[in-house]
């Protein structure tokens, strides 16, 4: 019980801390507005050119709400890989390590604390933009059904990004890995084009990869909140969370034993 409340209070303090500069927080979230606007332009023209109301099961309105949630998940998550790799490189990991908590759980709680308000504001601005452009979502209640999948998505993001960050133990600079991960998530998570529009073979590959569980799954669940999809998305997500979190824990233990902190 005390262990749980330990990480809960780490979550709380980062949550409060993220409000220290509200202007900064809001300013960052405004970024989603031009993104949603340009997505609207692209898909409006594309749907018109195709002369179809529905493409692969999605209407223009579905597509935009789908993209809004995908962007919210992506823009809401804090730069964990960068934080961790900086911790490793400048030696500040040392100062986080000398308290009685698990380093990874600490980072996870802190990351979630940082995520909440960011994501909420992104959803707010993104949602308002999309609402104005194409109208209300077809299934507003879909948000609540997608919520556990959104949380799962952030856990997946955390696992991968923490691995990237910890690779700073061995490589000098992890920024290339973060870009590439971001772009893979972009393409295999369906952040510009819903995976449904991909050719079948590519769809099959993309849906099996963890990126789909981290972005496409929850976003699609939001626009099509069916029980079948919920079970589908959640079960795949759980498998990936198990695989990736064990890998992360393993990498962390390995990294720790050969830890060399800079400075002396």
């Amino acid at each position: 019980m005390k262990t749980v409340s330990k990480y809960w209070s780490i979550f709380q303090i980062t949550l409060i801390n993220s409000l220290a500069y509200p202007g900064e927080l809001i300013g960052r979230s405004l970024m989603i507005i031009p993104f949603m606007w340009i997505f609207y332009q692209l898909w409006k023209v594309t749907f018109a050119a195709a002369g179809a109301e529905v493409i692969s099961g999605l209407t223009l309105r579905d597509t935009l709400w789908y993209l809004m949630l995908a962007e919210t998940i992506e823009l809401g998550r804090p730069p964990i890989a960068r934080t961790l790799s900086e911790n490793v490189k400048d030696g500040s990991i040392a100062y986080i390590l000398n308290k009685p908590y698990d380093f990874l759980w600490y980072q996870f709680s802190a990351a979630m604390g940082e995520t909440i308000f960011r994501a909420a504001l992104n959803a707010l601005f993104g949602g308002l933009t999309v609402w104005t452009l194409v109208g209300a979502p077809n299934h507003p209640q879909g948000f609540w059904i997608a919520l556990p999948a959104i949380l799962g998505a952030w856990i997946l993001h955390f696992c991968v990004n923490a691995m990237i960050g910890l690779s700073a133990f061995i490589v000098e600079d992890v920024s290339a890995f973060t870009w590439i991960y971001q772009k893979l998530a972009f393409i295999f998570g369906g952040m510009l084009i819903p995976l449904d529009f991909y050719p079948n073979w590519l769809q099959a590959i993309a849906k099996a990869l963890p990126f789909a569980s981290a972005i496409y799954g929850p976003a699609r669940l939001f626009v099509t909140p069916t029980l079948e999809l919920l079970i589908n998305v959640m079960s795949l997500q759980i498998v990936w969370i198990l695989v990736l979190s064990f890998t992360l824990a393993f990498i962390y233990r390995r990294g720790l034993t050969q830890l060399t902190v800079n400075g002396g």
Binding site: K2, K6, W8, S9, I10, I13, K99, P100
Partner: peptide, 10 residues
């Protein structure tokens, strides 16, 4: 921070 540390040290 004091309260947080209180939790961390259980």
């Amino acid at each position: 921070t004091f309260i947080l540390f209180g939790k961390i040290y259980e």
